[in-house]
């Protein structure tokens, strides 16, 4: 079959390319927008009054969850890394101990949430996935903090506080992500 022999076929091929390009650009712009929203949420959290430096709402996880459920692992990881690196850069502790904890917790929780979506996505709503992510994030950070940064298990004193916080923020972010994905499903992505 001679390729692009007829002008009609060539035209069709071009149209398809255009369409693919259009979709690609759309996705790119959309992901960039979501990344900036995640970054804004990340920084908004830093501005909120907070009794301790470790307890955080993790509102940016709403965006991560949304991207995970709409696109997939690769996109979620990209946006997650962008958000964490830029967020720590702006808050001024890039490559510090807090950044290491946040980064590893964030990446691992994205992987776990993807796995949970992959395995149990039919049964769990985004609230359940969000809870799994919140607990993974918390436990990773605690384990790293106690075994690497301090070399002491003293930090496990705080385990119940962290876990209660993870339960509450997991629920909150899950509801947020459900509402956001519900609204976005009406838009063409």
């Amino acid at each position: 079959m001679p390729s692009a022999a007829s002008p009609d076929k060539a035209n069709n091929l071009k149209k398809q390319e255009y369409a693919a390009d259009y979709l690609h650009t759309r996705k790119l712009v959309f992901l960039a927008m979501l990344a900036s929203i995640a970054l804004a949420l990340h920084i908004l959290e830093l501005a909120l009054p907070n009794p301790t430096p470790w307890l955080r709402l993790g509102l940016a996880n709403i965006i991560t969850l949304t991207i995970l459920s709409i696109y997939g692992l690769k996109e979620a990881l990209t946006v997650g890394i962008i958000r964490i690196v830029l967020g720590s850069f702006i808050s001024g502790n890039l490559f510090g101990p807090a950044f290491l904890l946040g980064f590893s917790g964030g990446i691992l929780s994205i992987f776990t949430m993807w796995l949970a979506l992959f395995i149990a996505g039919r049964y769990l709503s985004l609230i359940g996935i969000s809870l799994i992510g919140a607990y993974t994030h918390t436990l990773t950070q605690l384990a790293l903090a106690s075994f690497i940064l301090i070399g002491h298990t003293g930090i496990f004193f705080l385990l119940p506080v962290f876990m209660i916080m993870a339960l509450l923020t997991g629920l909150l972010n899950g509801v947020g992500a459900l509402i956001l994905t519900n609204h976005l499903s009406k838009a063409r992505m």
Partner: peptide, 23 residues
């Protein structure tokens, strides 16, 4: 919005949290 599996997960995690407190 919660599915049955979600509720089971929440109960499980709440128990997990409670146990962590005891521990």
């Amino acid at each position: 919005l919660l599915t049955p599996a979600d509720k089971i997960l929440i109960v499980f995690l709440a128990i997990f949290t409670g146990f962590s407190y005891v521990w």
